[in-house]
Write a protein that binds this DNA or RNA. Structure first.
Length: 378
DNA sequence: TGCATTTGACCATC
DNA sequence: GATGGTCAAATGCA
């Protein structure tokens, strides 16, 4: 069904695509002369185009049913981690793969959606870990797994009884790389933002232990934000399995790249491995971290709550202001790209992912779109 | 004292 | 019977 809005949508896609192509040409020219600042700026332009295209493509009216929402971090990651010449192709393939995966998964539904993430603890800062998705988890069991070097921990949402939230997750430390944790999420949170604890609980015991070890053996090194971003970009890996349709979830959080699909089991695996792609200087991080001071003033892009971004996206500015989610303060100085930057707050009590930044290019945000970065640079 | 974690036991599935 | 997942009493901590 072709409509005026559809035509406008396509025009917008075309315009953005054209702008991106031109920016990429400019980058090719700039590559011959190492002008770091210009390239950073150019990268931010490209990122903006990619994000816009991603969002537009995901928010396009899809053939029913829509795919389940998947981590927006992976959407953003995908748009940045591919080489500059095939961004659209990769995104299209990802969307197609995701849709196929979803289609397969729908044939064999299980009781709860299940997906897996792999996260790595930063050896120097301990900034990344499985307990840092913004939700409040309560450990209810630990089990030695056959063939696994480390025990598996079982967590459930703290608000299981109070808010009837049946989200679970399992944390399994990797045998091959002890700094890597595999997180298996089962079920989606129904406790939502409003039910989350204002002061988030401490990270998983495994993470605290790891952080202790790392800090003990390291020389109190700390990575600069850019380094942390690159580290995260290099190590972030997200897999999804047996994703279920959840109407409340948004296409904004769909995974961009399905590296593998196992048709027989209807398991869909997503791998986002930026690997050694250093062409993009890390203008994203996958997680928004709670400032820890309010339940409603943060959102995270972690797997279980990617749809939060959509919720925020759907909010009118007035609503955002009323909720105190954002206020204007663009005077951040700790980044080469200062305009329109999200920066995570380092005070989240249960997250070692601190000090990370989420850059937003000016074009992404309405000039009236308020953000409060006041507490982000403490 | 209340809450979170630990850990052995129990249950379900293959 | 083996294994994974969950329960619940015991324990620890602030």
């Amino acid at each position: 069904m072709e409509s005026a809005s559809s035509w406008e949508y396509n025009s917008l896609i075309n315009e953005l695509t054209q702008g991106r192509e031109q920016a990429m040409q400019l980058r090719a020219h700039l590559n011959s002369t190492p002008l770091t600042e210009s390239q950073d700026l150019l990268q931010s332009i490209l990122s903006s185009y990619e994000k816009s295209l991603s969002i537009l493509k995901w928010s396009e009216p899809l053939v029913q049913p829509q795919p389940p929402a998947l981590p927006i971090s992976t959407v953003l990651e995908s748009s940045l981690s591919v080489d500059g010449s095939s961004l659209s192709d990769d995104l299209s393939k990802s969307i197609q793969a995701h849709n196929e995966c979803y289609s397969n998964a729908s044939k064999k539904r299980k009781a709860m959606p299940t997906w897996t993430e792999q996260v790595r603890i930063n050896p120097h800062t301990g900034l990344e870990g499985p307990g840092e998705d913004g939700y409040s988890w309560r450990k209810y069991g630990q089990k030695d797994i056959l063939g696994a070097k480390y025990p598996r921990s079982y967590y459930r949402c703290t608000y299981r009884h109070t808010h009837n939230c049946w989200a679970n997750k399992q944390v399994q430390r990797s045998d091959d790389d002890p700094s890597v944790f595999e997180l298996t999420y089962k079920g989606t949170h129904t406790c939502n933002l409003a039910s989350r604890s204002a002061t988030l609980p401490p990270p998983s015991s495994e993470i605290q232990e790891m952080k202790h070890d790392y800090h003990h053996h390291s020389n109190n090194e700390s990575l600069q934000p850019g380094q942390m971003i690159m580290h995260l970009r290099t190590n972030l890996r997200v897999e999804t399995n047996d994703l279920e349709t959840t109407e409340e979830r948004s296409p904004f959080s769909a995974p961009p790249t399905f590296s593998s699909m196992t048709g027989e089991t209807n398991e869909c695996s997503l791998t986002v491995l930026p690997a050694n792609d250093h062409r993009f200087p890390g203008t994203y991080t996958p997680s928004f971290i709670s400032p820890g001071s309010s339940e409603s003033n943060y959102f995270s892009t972690s797997s279980n709550q990617m749809y939060d971004f959509k919720k925020i996206h759907d909010l009118k500015h007035s609503e955002l202001e009323q909720n105190g989610m954002f206020s204007t303060n663009a005077s951040s100085t700790n980044s080469p790209i200062t305009n329109g930057m999200f920066s995570t707050n380092a005070s989240s009590t249960n997250s070692p992912i601190t000090g990370l930044e989420f850059f937003m290019d000016p074009v992404d945000l309405d000039s009236n779109f308020p953000f409060d970065t006041t507490g982000f640079f403490s």
